[in-house]
Structures are given as C-alpha cells and as structure tokens.
Computed example of a mutant assay.
Amino acid sequence: MITRFHYLLALCLFFYACAPTTDDTFDFMVIGDVPYHLPEDFPRFENMIQAINAHKPAFTIHVGDIKSGSTPCSDEYYERIQAYFGQFEQPLVYTPGDNEWTDCHRPACGAYDPEERLDKLRQLFFSQAQSQGKNPLYLHTQNSYEGFEKFVENALWEANNVSFATIHVVGSNNNLKLDSLALNDEFYEREMASLFWLNRVFDAAIEKNHQGIVIALHAGLNYRSQESSNGHLSFVKLLNERVAAFDKPILLLYGDFHKFAVDKPLVDEKRKVRTNFTQVQTFGDRDMHAVRIRVNPQNPTLFEVYQHFIPGN
C-alpha cells in the first residue's frame, strides 16, 4: 500500500537525484619536456598517454619542450607529436618550449631559422582556437585582439570558477640574445604580448569573480636577477604586482629543468613570501611522469598537488 509518506519520500529522492552536484572538485594533469630521447621515448610517451586516458582528467596541459635540444626540428617530427596529442581522450592544451624553436639553429637540430620554426608550430598546433586531443576544448586566444594577431598560442579558458591560461614564455633566457649586434625584435614583440596576456588573465578572473588562477608556461622563471639581461625580468615584475593585488590562490605550472618541485618564489617588499602564489615544476626528460592537480574549493589553498607516476616509465 502506497501511503502519503511513501509518496513524499519518493518525490524527495527524485528531486535529490536530479539536483545538480555542488561538488566542483576536479583533476587535471600536467606534463612537459617529453618525449626527449629518441626513438626509445616514443613507447614511453604512448604509455603515458594511455595512463592519463585511464585516469580521465578534465584536461591535460603540456608545458612545452616536445623534444630535446639536440634532435632535429623537422616538420615530420612536429607532425608525429601532433598525432600523439590527438591520442589524448580529453583535451590537451599545449604551450611551446624553447627546444622546439629557439634552439633549432643548432647543427644537431638541423640548423633551422628559429623564427621560421615558430611559424611552423603556430600553423600546425594553433591553427584553430581549440586544444589538441580527441575531444578538444574551445580556447579564447590572444590573436583575437588587435595588434596581437600572430599570438595564436596564448590561450585562456575556465573550468568550475577557475581561470586557466597559457603564456608563451620560454627558457633559453626567453630568446633574449645578449650579443651586442642582436636586434631581438622577436623577443620584444612576444614580451609585449606576454605582458598584455598576463594582465588579461588577471582582469578576466577579477571580472568573473573566479576563485583562483592557473598559468602554464615553459620557462623556469629567473626571479632573482634585476639586470636588463634577464629575459624574464618584466614578466616577473608584472606577475608579482598582479599576484599582490589578487589575494586569491594562483598556481603557476612550468617545466624547463625537468625536476618535480613545488615552491613559493615570490616575496613582498619585506621579503616575506606571497602565500597565495605557488609554482609547480613537472617531471620531464628521463622521468616521464605527470603531476596531477586537484582543484578543491573546500581546501583554502584551492590547488592540491600530487605526483602521478606512470607505471613502466
């Protein structure tokens, strides 16, 4: 016999089951500086892709260096990596590293013109405003702003009230050449774009009242040197200013030096650490593993960092 109590109970259970979840926790992966050693790293990279697919993260970020600094920067190689990126079940967001363009002038890399290789990367990996992967993610890209039409690689997206961005800042001193005869036109143009995009990232997070920001780039930033020879000087200065004013958790993801590390490099005028800023360096080179980031709004720091070892690698 169905009583009024049973009816009300069933109705409550129905609405509870249909109610949207309030759990905004999700995982994403970070990788970089892979694959490096060829051809032996190709099977290990395939193993990494399969392991990440099995975990089913919301997306994966590759922070650059899709090759070592002593292997050819050929079209064929770039196309092979793009095909690998296409094997990720979920979106794969990529930002360039130095090895795939700034270092391509080296004889071991094929003695290419670095800026020509950068053009090739832009054409191949960033021809559309979306990520790589089988199920690409729409990205808001910098080339939609007047004066920055060539910077297709700088992207902005959001997930569960958090801003995410890639900014093209690389190692090798950010391609700032110290030769007195060097013009450095490429560096100054890209630096202007990077500073514009860094401001846009923070402005967008403030406009939308996002609870945190994640920035992905390749370079292990030089936070110490105040000399004009530091190719990261202007970027670090602006980053420090925007972090100081934001007062919410900010996570910077990078590669470059191939060693997993978590630290807080930014300090205020009194040399006290800026507690809302954390940077994480992912594994790379011989250590073909990932970093898993859990975005957890219940945690005051918002971002939980886990080492994600790939079995067999």
Rank of each mutant, 00 (worst) to 15 (best):
N143W: 08
L198M: 15
L178Q: 04
N143A: 02
S234L: 06
N173S: 06
E153F: 03
A159Q: 15
N154C: 10
E146S: 09
A219Y: 01
W197V: 07
F196P: 01
Q130C: 05
H168Y: 07
A219V: 06
G231N: 06
I206S: 04
F148T: 00
N175I: 04
H218E: 10
Q132K: 13
A159S: 15
D113M: 04
K177A: 07
G220Q: 11
I215G: 09
N161D: 12
R200E: 13
H232A: 02
S229G: 15
Y112C: 07
Q226P: 09
K134P: 07
A193Q: 07
G220N: 09
V170H: 01
Y145W: 13
Y112D: 03
V236L: 04
P136G: 15
D203T: 10
V162K: 06
F126V: 02
S144L: 15
S131D: 06
A219L: 15
N222G: 05
K150N: 07
S194N: 14
L217Y: 00
A193L: 01
T166A: 07
T166C: 07
A182Y: 00
I213C: 03
W157F: 06
K120P: 01
D185M: 02
P136M: 12
F125I: 05
L221V: 08
P114D: 09
F187V: 11
E149T: 12
R117T: 14
L156F: 01
I215R: 07
N161P: 00
D179T: 05
L118I: 06
L178R: 10
L176E: 11
A216M: 01
S229R: 06
F235A: 15
E146R: 05
L238S: 03
N173L: 10
P114M: 09
M192L: 04
P114C: 06
L233E: 04
Y223N: 00
Q130D: 05
H218G: 04
A219Q: 10
W197I: 13
E227K: 10
A216W: 01
G133L: 03
A204W: 01
F126R: 03
V170N: 15
L183N: 11
K150C: 15
G212C: 05
F164W: 12
P136D: 12
D179C: 07
L239W: 03
K150F: 00
Y223F: 13
S144R: 15
A193V: 08
S194G: 12
L156W: 14
S172D: 15
V152H: 02
N222R: 13
L121K: 10
Y145A: 09
A204Y: 12
A205V: 12
G133C: 08
